[in-house]
């Protein structure tokens, strides 16, 4: 995989162990695509979904520090002016206009932020799962854009207008899910597999389920 140099413009901590890394955009991409990132040319790069819109001047990457990870603890120390190495944008987890559901846990929200910022938020319902109230990244933007269609599901803390429990529990409680809408899933394999099973069980054809797994 070919990598090229980029200069960091900011690295902002937005929650405990969670950061938004930014650098100047000098390429075209489709919302939902990822780039590979490494700190040195010879390191094995890791893949991150782009979390900014297609017309934004900067590319934003949402990441959290993985305990024992080789890359993210060092990424967290990056500051303005430091260099990283990135690949061209790749992947086909493309967003589309029209009615649909965005379902994510944790930093799996990133591709949906790119879709929102690229004008694909109309008629979308977003389910975001997190352990704590501070893990609903970009909640102001999503709340403003999606209103009641922005649903936060929190497993460890209680909050105003926040569903207590996992997103899978929220989905199980729904009497009906529109079978002809598209369902976009992004997060861990556990979340994707369990959510997909629930959707299929509730009558959503698997052809309408699109998933991106963070591995």
């Amino acid at each position: 995989m070919e990598l090229h140099k980029q200069i960091i413009t900011s690295n902002q901590q937005i929650a405990p162990n969670t950061y938004i890394l930014s650098f100047k955009r000098d390429f075209i991409f489709a919302p939902g695509q990822w780039i590979a990132i490494s700190l040195h040319l010879n390191d094995t790069p890791r893949l991150y979904s782009i979390a900014s819109g297609i017309s934004n001047d900067e590319i934003m990457i949402l990441f959290d520090i993985k305990a024992g990870g080789e890359l993210t603890p060092n990424m967290a120390t990056l500051k303005k002016g430091d260099e990283i190495f990135i690949s061209n944008p790749q992947g086909s987890f493309f967003g589309k206009s029209g009615k649909g559901w965005w379902i994510a846990t944790g930093t799996g929200i990133a591709p949906f932020k790119a879709m929102l910022d690229s004008g694909l938020g109309k008629d979308k319902k977003l389910l975001h799962g997190g352990r704590t109230l501070d893990s609903f990244y970009f909640e102001n933007q999503f709340s403003e854009a999606l209103g009641e269609n922005y649903i936060r599901c929190c497993t460890r803390e209680k909050g105003d207008n926040v569903f207590e429990g996992r997103i899978t529990e929220y989905l199980k409680k729904q009497n009906q899910l529109p079978p002809d809408e598209k369902y976009y899933l992004c997060g861990s394999s556990e979340m994707v597999v369990e959510t997909r099973d629930i959707l299929v069980d509730k009558g959503v054809p698997y052809e309408n389920i699109k998933a991106e797994i963070y591995f």
Binding site: W34, F93, I209, K210, E212, I213
Partner: peptide, 8 residues
């Protein structure tokens, strides 16, 4: 739809 890895 069969294999999410295809997106990557």
């Amino acid at each position: 739809k069969l294999m999410p890895i295809q997106h990557v």
